[in-house]
């Protein structure tokens, strides 16, 4: 036996593949478009969402029996907003440079519909441990897609990864550029994120026919 029971392990593995929040449920698209022009912000966003989602799901799960159902959405929103502000403040005080780099992304976490979606669909009806796993799993599933999209967009759009010029210098015409290769400027624009996500969905569905709806 591993650390997790089979049922619990599925909470982590499902969102990574067959029940991915972005490619299958098509949630959280807005932030996936906005921040994936480069790899680094994509990774940072993924980590921040893992934190907010893990903790948030546990908090909501602990409160699930006392939350009045009439105002549960507002309560969820308050929990997300509070966590995000805490992250933001702590970063500003102890890791100022990092917090500068993240700038808007921290605030953007609040708008991520995956978080509210998991609170509503899972944490309100399950215990804290399972909610924690579900939160981490979904945030990972979200993060993986973000990183894949960020990788292709930065590589093909700017010819860099983490800001390093991996394909040579486009102005000095070295490396691949000496052979006449050009960066695709379209890749850094938001519409290409949508197309890359679309391609991922295509690949995923053609590998797993069970995912294709009629």
């Amino acid at each position: 036996m591993g650390l997790l029971s089979k049922k619990d392990a599925k909470l982590i593995s499902d969102p990574l593949a067959d029940n991915n929040p972005i490619t299958i449920q098509v949630l959280g698209i807005c932030s996936a478009l906005a921040i994936t022009a480069q790899l680094k912000p994509s990774i940072v966003m993924a980590i921040s969402v893992i934190f907010v989602m893990g903790v948030g799901n546990v908090v909501i799960s602990l409160m699930r029996n006392v939350i009045p159902s009439k105002i549960r959405i507002i309560v969820q929103l308050i929990v997300v907003a509070t966590l995000v502000i805490i992250v933001d403040q702590v970063l500003k005080a102890f890791a100022y440079t990092l917090s500068k780099e993240l700038s808007v992304f921290i605030g953007l976490i609040i708008t991520n519909c995956i978080i509210m979606g998991r609170f509503e669909a899972f944490a309100l009806g399950n215990g804290p441990w399972r909610s924690f796993l579900d939160g981490i799993g979904n945030a990972l599933g979200y993060g993986v897609i973000l990183i894949i999209v960020g990788f292709f967009r930065e590589l093909l759009g700017s010819g860099t990864l983490f800001g390093f010029k991996v394909l040579g210098d486009s102005v000095e015409k070295t490396g691949l550029y000496a052979l006449g290769y050009e960066n695709n400027g379209f890749m850094v624009l938001p519409p290409m994120a949508l197309i890359v996500v679309g391609l991922i969905i295509w690949v995923q569905r053609s590998r797993n026919k069970a995912l294709i709806e009629d």
């Binding site: 006392v66 507002i74 309560v75 308050i78 509070t82 805490i86 403040q89």
Partner: peptide, 20 residues
Amino acid sequence: FAVIMVVVVGAILAGLASGL
């Protein structure tokens, strides 16, 4: 519930903000 929630969250955030 709403009142308690707002007071608690407000206190946490205000305390954190003025502490930092």
